[in-house]
Amino acid sequence: MNDAVEAVKALAIGFATTFKHLFRKPITEEYPEYKRPLPARSRARIILTRDPDGAERCVACYLCSAVCPVSCISMQSAENEDGRRYAQWFRINFARCIYCGLCEEACPTSAIQLTPEFENCENDILALVYEKKNLLVDHQGKDKEYNYYKYAGVATEVGKKGEHVKEERPVNIKSNLP
């Protein structure tokens, strides 16, 4: 009997709560009249950033395309005149992207980053296939410092052998002196 009373009480409280809601002002924020400022790390529209020197960060390592659960990234790597590996073309199919952010997490160069900008809907689905020129931006995104080629061992215009961060001068292979 007690149970029944409890149950009725619980029901009553429930109904009362929802009933009271009827007279509250809705808490909905109405988009697009009001656009809520999103945190910098919200995940939407992807960009390819540049390193502080202004060069393209992406080295076309294929890690983002490998990790992408929906396989929406495709690219072609190539070598440019200074010996840098870069993406000859880079394509993201935003019609497929689920904005999971795994690509950003996999990227060893901080090149690919998700941004809070999410208003990139299109009627024509083909318009959602972004090429490199649509993705490349002129800033560093969230990572202001990193410049991959300063840490790698390969010789590029950023540094020759032995000129990168924490590197000895190259071994002189013609001398046996230590």
Binding site: G153, V154, K166, E167, E168, P170, V171, I173
Partner: peptide, 23 residues
Amino acid sequence: YLGKKRTYPDQYLGPLIQHEMNR
């Protein structure tokens, strides 16, 4: 290891093979 890394010069080995001795 936080010390400096040893590096090597690389060589041209012909049209078939790229040399990257640091590795």
